[in-house]
Protein backbone atom coordinates (compact mmCIF):
# COMPACT_ATOMS: atom_id res chain seq x y z
CA UNK A 1 0.00 0.00 0.00
CA UNK A 2 1.47 3.34 -0.94
CA UNK A 3 1.22 5.77 1.92
CA UNK A 4 0.35 9.02 0.23
CA UNK A 5 -0.41 10.61 3.57
CA UNK A 6 2.55 9.52 5.59
CA UNK A 7 1.82 9.17 9.26
CA UNK A 8 4.31 11.91 10.04
CA UNK A 9 2.47 14.49 7.97
CA UNK A 10 -1.06 13.97 9.21
CA UNK A 11 -2.44 15.93 12.07
CA UNK A 12 -2.41 14.70 15.63
CA UNK A 13 -6.15 13.97 15.79
CA UNK A 14 -6.09 11.87 12.67
CA UNK A 15 -3.13 10.00 14.08
CA UNK A 16 -5.11 9.29 17.25
CA UNK A 17 -8.03 8.11 15.18
CA UNK A 18 -5.77 5.74 13.25
CA UNK A 19 -4.64 4.32 16.57
CA UNK A 20 -8.27 3.84 17.54
CA UNK A 21 -8.60 1.95 14.30
CA UNK A 22 -5.78 -0.28 15.43
CA UNK A 23 -7.57 -1.00 18.68
CA UNK A 24 -6.10 1.61 21.02
CA UNK A 25 -8.92 2.79 23.27
CA UNK A 26 -6.86 5.34 25.15
CA UNK A 27 -6.61 7.29 21.92
CA UNK A 28 -10.38 7.29 21.65
CA UNK A 29 -10.63 8.63 25.19
CA UNK A 30 -8.17 11.38 24.26
CA UNK A 31 -10.18 12.34 21.19
CA UNK A 32 -13.35 12.39 23.22
CA UNK A 33 -11.77 14.52 25.89
CA UNK A 34 -10.52 16.99 23.32
CA UNK A 35 -13.64 17.35 21.20
CA UNK A 36 -16.50 16.50 23.53
CA UNK A 37 -17.23 20.07 24.52
CA UNK A 38 -17.19 21.63 21.08
CA UNK A 39 -19.53 18.92 19.77
CA UNK A 40 -21.94 19.24 22.67
CA UNK A 41 -21.92 23.02 22.68
CA UNK A 42 -22.64 23.09 18.98
CA UNK A 43 -25.46 20.60 19.40
CA UNK A 44 -26.86 22.43 22.37
CA UNK A 45 -27.08 25.66 20.44
CA UNK A 46 -28.55 23.84 17.46
CA UNK A 47 -31.38 22.24 19.43
CA UNK A 48 -31.47 24.47 22.55
CA UNK A 49 -32.15 21.52 24.79
CA UNK A 50 -29.48 19.92 26.95
CA UNK A 51 -30.88 16.40 27.13
CA UNK A 52 -31.32 16.18 23.38
CA UNK A 53 -27.92 17.71 22.75
CA UNK A 54 -26.25 15.14 24.97
CA UNK A 55 -28.15 12.29 23.41
CA UNK A 56 -27.11 13.43 19.94
CA UNK A 57 -23.53 13.83 21.13
CA UNK A 58 -23.55 10.25 22.41
CA UNK A 59 -24.65 9.20 18.98
CA UNK A 60 -21.90 11.26 17.34
CA UNK A 61 -19.13 9.63 19.36
CA UNK A 62 -20.63 6.19 19.00
CA UNK A 63 -20.53 6.67 15.25
CA UNK A 64 -16.97 7.89 15.43
CA UNK A 65 -16.07 4.75 17.31
CA UNK A 66 -17.99 2.52 14.96
CA UNK A 67 -16.31 4.07 11.94
CA UNK A 68 -12.83 3.39 13.25
CA UNK A 69 -12.29 0.42 10.94
CA UNK A 70 -13.05 2.36 7.82
CA UNK A 71 -11.59 5.69 8.90
CA UNK A 72 -9.21 7.31 6.41
CA UNK A 73 -7.59 10.67 7.16
CA UNK A 74 -8.70 12.25 3.90
CA UNK A 75 -10.05 15.38 5.60
CA UNK A 76 -9.13 17.28 8.70
CA UNK A 77 -10.37 15.32 11.71
CA UNK A 78 -12.65 18.11 12.95
CA UNK A 79 -14.17 18.38 9.48
CA UNK A 80 -14.98 14.69 9.55
CA UNK A 81 -16.25 14.91 13.13
CA UNK A 82 -18.48 17.87 12.36
CA UNK A 83 -19.79 16.19 9.25
CA UNK A 84 -21.18 13.48 11.50
CA UNK A 85 -22.33 16.05 14.05
CA UNK A 86 -24.14 18.34 11.63
CA UNK A 87 -25.66 15.39 9.82
CA UNK A 88 -27.31 14.24 13.03
CA UNK A 89 -28.23 17.75 14.12
CA UNK A 90 -29.79 18.74 10.80
CA UNK A 91 -31.77 15.52 10.69
CA UNK A 92 -33.04 16.11 14.18
CA UNK A 93 -34.06 19.67 13.44
CA UNK A 94 -35.81 18.61 10.24
CA UNK A 95 -37.72 15.86 12.01
CA UNK A 96 -38.74 18.25 14.75
CA UNK A 97 -39.92 20.74 12.19
CA UNK A 98 -42.14 18.12 10.61
CA UNK A 99 -43.59 17.25 14.02
CA UNK A 100 -44.22 20.88 14.75
CA UNK A 101 -46.52 21.18 11.78
CA UNK A 102 -48.93 19.15 13.85
CA UNK A 103 -48.09 20.25 17.36
CA UNK A 104 -48.68 23.70 18.61
CA UNK A 105 -45.58 25.79 19.09
CA UNK A 106 -46.26 26.20 22.77
CA UNK A 107 -43.32 24.09 23.68
CA UNK A 108 -40.84 26.75 24.55
CA UNK A 109 -37.13 26.89 24.24
CA UNK A 110 -35.54 25.30 27.24
CA UNK A 111 -34.19 27.99 29.43
CA UNK A 112 -31.50 25.85 30.99
CA UNK A 113 -28.46 27.94 30.17
CA UNK A 114 -27.00 29.82 33.04
CA UNK A 115 -25.81 33.02 31.50
CA UNK A 116 -22.31 34.07 32.10
CA UNK A 117 -22.13 37.77 32.46
CA UNK A 118 -18.89 39.57 33.02
CA UNK A 119 -17.79 38.95 36.58
CA UNK A 120 -17.28 42.59 37.32
CA UNK A 121 -20.79 43.05 38.66
CA UNK A 122 -22.75 44.45 35.80
CA UNK A 123 -25.52 46.61 37.11
CA UNK A 124 -28.99 45.21 37.13
CA UNK A 125 -30.13 47.25 34.21
CA UNK A 126 -27.34 46.12 31.98
CA UNK A 127 -27.95 42.56 33.04
CA UNK A 128 -31.59 42.78 32.10
CA UNK A 129 -30.72 44.36 28.80
CA UNK A 130 -28.21 41.67 27.94
CA UNK A 131 -30.64 38.97 28.98
CA UNK A 132 -33.30 40.45 26.76
CA UNK A 133 -30.89 40.69 23.84
CA UNK A 134 -29.74 37.14 24.24
CA UNK A 135 -33.34 35.98 24.46
CA UNK A 136 -34.11 37.62 21.13
CA UNK A 137 -31.04 36.16 19.48
CA UNK A 138 -31.80 32.66 20.71
CA UNK A 139 -35.30 32.89 19.40
CA UNK A 140 -34.02 34.18 16.07
CA UNK A 141 -31.47 31.37 15.87
CA UNK A 142 -34.18 28.83 16.50
CA UNK A 143 -36.14 30.28 13.63
CA UNK A 144 -33.27 30.14 11.15
CA UNK A 145 -33.41 27.43 8.48
CA UNK A 146 -31.28 24.56 9.80
CA UNK A 147 -28.36 24.95 7.41
CA UNK A 148 -28.04 28.65 8.14
CA UNK A 149 -28.21 27.85 11.81
CA UNK A 150 -25.44 25.27 11.56
CA UNK A 151 -23.27 27.57 9.46
CA UNK A 152 -23.60 30.49 11.87
CA UNK A 153 -22.83 28.37 14.93
CA UNK A 154 -19.76 26.81 13.32
CA UNK A 155 -18.58 30.21 12.13
CA UNK A 156 -19.12 31.99 15.40
CA UNK A 157 -18.32 29.42 18.08
CA UNK A 158 -16.03 26.97 16.28
CA UNK A 159 -14.37 29.86 14.45
CA UNK A 160 -14.22 27.81 11.29
CA UNK A 161 -13.18 29.19 7.93
CA UNK A 162 -15.71 29.32 5.10
CA UNK A 163 -13.85 26.50 3.36
CA UNK A 164 -14.14 24.16 6.32
CA UNK A 165 -17.84 24.87 6.80
CA UNK A 166 -18.28 24.19 3.09
CA UNK A 167 -16.50 20.85 3.42
CA UNK A 168 -18.72 19.96 6.38
CA UNK A 169 -21.99 20.96 4.78
CA UNK A 170 -20.98 19.55 1.42
CA UNK A 171 -21.53 22.75 -0.52
CA UNK A 172 -19.44 25.43 -2.18
CA UNK A 173 -17.71 28.20 -0.33
CA UNK A 174 -19.91 30.78 -1.98
CA UNK A 175 -22.98 28.87 -0.86
CA UNK A 176 -21.63 28.97 2.68
CA UNK A 177 -21.11 32.70 2.42
CA UNK A 178 -24.63 33.28 1.28
CA UNK A 179 -25.96 31.04 4.08
CA UNK A 180 -23.94 33.00 6.59
CA UNK A 181 -24.75 36.42 5.23
CA UNK A 182 -28.46 35.73 5.23
CA UNK A 183 -28.29 34.24 8.71
CA UNK A 184 -26.35 37.13 10.20
CA UNK A 185 -28.67 39.58 8.57
CA UNK A 186 -31.72 37.92 10.14
CA UNK A 187 -29.99 37.83 13.50
CA UNK A 188 -29.02 41.48 13.34
CA UNK A 189 -32.52 42.46 12.46
CA UNK A 190 -33.83 40.50 15.45
CA UNK A 191 -31.86 42.97 17.56
CA UNK A 192 -33.05 46.12 15.85
CA UNK A 193 -34.85 47.28 18.96
CA UNK A 194 -31.50 47.32 20.75
CA UNK A 195 -29.73 49.48 18.19
CA UNK A 196 -27.76 52.24 19.91
CA UNK A 197 -29.49 54.98 17.98
CA UNK A 198 -32.77 53.24 18.65
CA UNK A 199 -34.28 55.73 16.25
CA UNK A 200 -37.20 54.75 14.12
CA UNK A 201 -35.56 51.45 13.20
CA UNK A 202 -37.90 49.61 15.52
CA UNK A 203 -40.96 49.20 13.44
CA UNK A 204 -40.92 47.72 10.01
Amino acid sequence: MDNVTSVASIERDAELMLRVRDGDETSFALLLEKHRNSVIHFLYRMVQNQAIAEELAQEVFLRVYRSRQTYEPTAKFTTWLFRITTHLALNHVRDRRKDKLHDSIDEKIEDGAPRQLPTREANVEERLLRDARLGEVRKAIEELPEKQRGAVLMHKYQEMEYSQIAAILGCSESAVKSLLFRAYESLRSSLRQFSPGGNGLKAS
Partner: peptide, 9 residues
Protein backbone atom coordinates in the same frame (compact mmCIF):
# COMPACT_ATOMS: atom_id res chain seq x y z
CA UNK B 1 -21.66 40.45 22.17
CA UNK B 2 -25.02 38.79 22.64
CA UNK B 3 -23.74 35.56 21.15
CA UNK B 4 -20.76 35.73 23.50
CA UNK B 5 -23.21 35.89 26.41
CA UNK B 6 -24.71 32.58 25.40
CA UNK B 7 -23.25 30.08 27.83
CA UNK B 8 -23.87 26.36 27.63
CA UNK B 9 -25.08 24.18 30.49
Amino acid sequence: ESLDDWATP
